[in-house]
Nucleic acid binder design. Sequence first.
DNA 1: CTTGACCTTACTGCAAGGGTAAGGTTTAAG
DNA 2: CTTAAACCTTACCCTTGCAGTAAGGTCAAG
Lengths: 128, 128
Amino acid sequence: MKISEVAEKAGLTVKAVRYYENVGLIPKPARQQNGYRSYDDSVLPILNLIHRSRAAGFSVDECRELIELFNNPARHSADVHELICQKVEAIEKQQAQLEHIKEHLIALATRCENNEKSTCSILASLTK
Amino acid sequence: MKISEVAEKAGLTVKAVRYYENVGLIPKPARQQNGYRSYDDSVLPILNLIHRSRAAGFSVDECRELIELFNNPARHSADVHELICQKVEAIEKQQAQLEHIKEHLIALATRCENNEKSTCSILASLTK
DNA sequence: CTTGACCTTACTGCAAGGGTAAGGTTTAAG
DNA sequence: CTTAAACCTTACCCTTGCAGTAAGGTCAAG
């Protein structure tokens, strides 16, 4: 398989696949005589893992941890569970922050004159 | 006022103040004979605006829009209101996305064996 | 024979500054 | 008087996760 084929099967771009290789998430593939990367199916689970966990909000470094667990036959499923739970907590923190910010903005907006005049209590509040 | 003083008054770092100058958010200040930046109080409202709107999730470019409104005596407060409301909507979109991701992760976690064995339905699900 | 679709490496760019280098200035203390 | 701390300056690299582009090699079809 050439790179565009694995990329498409995993739902990634060619660029991304090469990037993951560069940062060591996937092993360096064999090369054809012309220098083209030559993949076999064994790389697909890892690329799928990367694709899905990136979409689930994991950083590339966090993907690395997941891949290590995936590659480690002595893993405990509890360790994977732990990673997922940590991510859920991180997301909940983010959500709380966003909620905070949103409430602040809504408070500003409701105090706003919202008309054609230049007097603006939002700007007044933000600049003081 | 020297840079560290304005920075502290606005709750920003010296680095950030210089950065905002470089990208044109604040005017280039006068210089003392030794080359040090010399600020007067008129820059503080703008730095406050930047600080607070950055904290409220606005990008530097969005801050630029707010500053332009602040500097424009012919502005309409409704325009400011509009910017705030757009930001609220963007935040709500982000929240919805995070909620989506979180639910996905929780679904994975609850299906997980969560024990000392290596069998892991999370990894199975993410790699297939 | 040439066009177009692949592939390669390598460099630049994005956001929003932080970190550090290498140097000049000023001020307080010994 | 000197020195050390605490400022200030410009300028460069680092971060994240790739995308875009350059400049070139390769391969199959028309």
